[in-house]
Design a protein around this nucleic acid. Sequence first.
RNA 1: CGGGGUGUAGCGCAGUUUGGUAGCGCGUUUGACUGGGGGUCAAAAGGUCGCAGGUUCAAAUCCUGUCACCCCGACCA
Length: 634
Amino acid sequence: MTTSTATPTAASSTYRTRIHGDIARWSRTLIPTAKEPPADAEAPSHKLLVRAGYIRRVTAGVYEYLPLGWRVLRKVSQIVREEMNAAGASEMLMPALAPTELLRETGRAEDYGDLLFRFEDRHGRDSYLGPTHEEVITDLMRQVVSSYKQLPLNLYQIQTKYRDEFRPRAGLLRGREFLMKDAYSFDMTLEGLNEAYDKMYQAYTNIFTRCGLDFTVVEAEAGPIGGSASHEFMVNCETGEDTILVCPESGYAANVEKCEIGERPAPAVGFFVGEPSGALEEVHTPNCPGIDDVCAFMKVKPQNMLKTVVFKVVKQSEEEEKNFPGDWWVVAVVRGDHDVNEGKVREISECKLVLADPEEARKSGFEIGFVSPRAAVGKPQTLIIVDPDAAVGMDAAKGKPMFWVTGADKKDHHVKHFNWQRDLGKDPVSSCADKKDCFFEVGSIRNAMAGDPSPRAKGAMLEARRGIEVGHIFKLGKKYSSAMGFKVSGEDQKLHEVIMGCYGIGVSRTVASAVEMAFDDDGIVWPAAIAPYHVLITVMKPGDAKSMEVAEQLANEMSELGLDVLIDDRDERPGSKFKDADLIGIPVRVTIGEKGLAESAVEFKLRSDSGKGSFVAIAEAAGKCSDATAAAGA
RNA sequence: CGGGGUGUAGCGCAGUUUGGUAGCGCGUUUGACUGGGGGUCAAAAGGUCGCAGGUUCAAAUCCUGUCACCCCGACCA
């Protein structure tokens, strides 16, 4: 592996010695290219990486990295390594295999469920293959770190990870075995954590910039891993699995789960106010628990439905259980074309929630699938939250009373002409005010969508884009140190739980997303920094002594300049060699043929240029390749 | 976990309805011609038709079971 002569960040200064580039011969390595992709490949990166001989599938979601693929993976790893080291983190290696009892300490043995690769060894010990390593590192740390003087620390590894995805797909983008960099920071104070986090944010920005990727950093929910803040690094790409929302004016960007919605104007007449659109009418809707089913059956639009989602409150302490005995519920109401955002419901309700079990909810009077706000209003131990877009009585656009369809609170029935005031009381909010254990409020509880007002710039609208998540940084807080008893002595001579952060990069996914981002009809177009080789020397007549001599000489010169060179010395027809060259996507191609040699020249062409290329004197070729790769960021 | 689908040569596929000697294209090997964008001709190698039972004189084909894989949805540190 090499570094080039012109690495743009401070990390390159770690190299004191001149490192020569690699030279390889196509005929003596393994690059099995194919005209047709395997039938199971769908994503462009999957098709191309297989066709170009980078990877092969071994079983669902598991791939071999052939020589070219492994080189790319190592290039990305090396960039990650350099930037992590420059940010003050230390590399180590944890095992992929660990005892499940570690996960029991934090409850994640259950939380992960089937996603965890688990098995018993011959002694009957329950083991797992690590999907991530919070428990392992915390276990290590609690053994070896006992004083604040040993902190702060940031430790990372580049390790194969395992997740038993139910449906692996898209080649390297969602595999069951994948290469990941994971880092863990340990601090005594919140300020320390914030500093560590900001350093990682910067390191990640450097890493993905150096990899030549076009990416967006978005605010994200911390998710099941817990914690208080997080950002995702998303490669901008139409084929991406994830939707992100961005504000074109302020630069605010967030994923769908996290994205806030700017102030939505309340109806001019006030929330819930409006005459009924007609008499309440019950409709038999057999086998229609879902919004789409009902809409198709009743021929109404989702915008005219009220969706009612029932959550159960999870009490987190015995004290809570004592103060609030029995089952408590949170009922979220949104418009049928919107999605309830559990995080936002949680924030407003200030409770830990789970989606109610249908059976259990039914016993308490919620006919799941057919619930309406009527089932919840005035009900004890229940909080109702209605999204502003659902809390309207007048259809402002049409100037008519709002036509609502919602559940009939009995199986296989819905009602139409639902009206907030008539069916819930003259003023739904105050109707609950005099009961001390029933609550009713209007709050923003749905996922943001394209077209929603920006939360950061007045008048701007959110836009939706697609992306591939390649990096994710979290502020974990004390979740793991607390669960696993990782405490150290502070300056005050007292024990303190350590504050953690964790920082992941999907290395193999980064490789695939680089391809998703840059390819054309002919094949891959690698960013120079992560291409398996910088230069491909295509020898038209490998049987010709003069041609091969020039090829070797050029390769040596380039290697001296730190370039990695692949010589296509195969005795193939020119057409095949050019097709293969475009397919594997090496950034610079130098062609050695009779035309040029007669003039002591070779042909120089960038993969990213569609033109024919140009002739360059042999003496200048190596330098030109070096300049071109440096200009492309390698 | 719901719905749909596929397993036949290294890759892509036909053949299965109506049981009767295992096929095509690409790739591979050999030879000749060719030689700047996947060439031409000639010859050749390569398959227990996913696996296990069953029906039958006879099974890639029909029946039963099983395994693997893919797509859509749900889910997703």
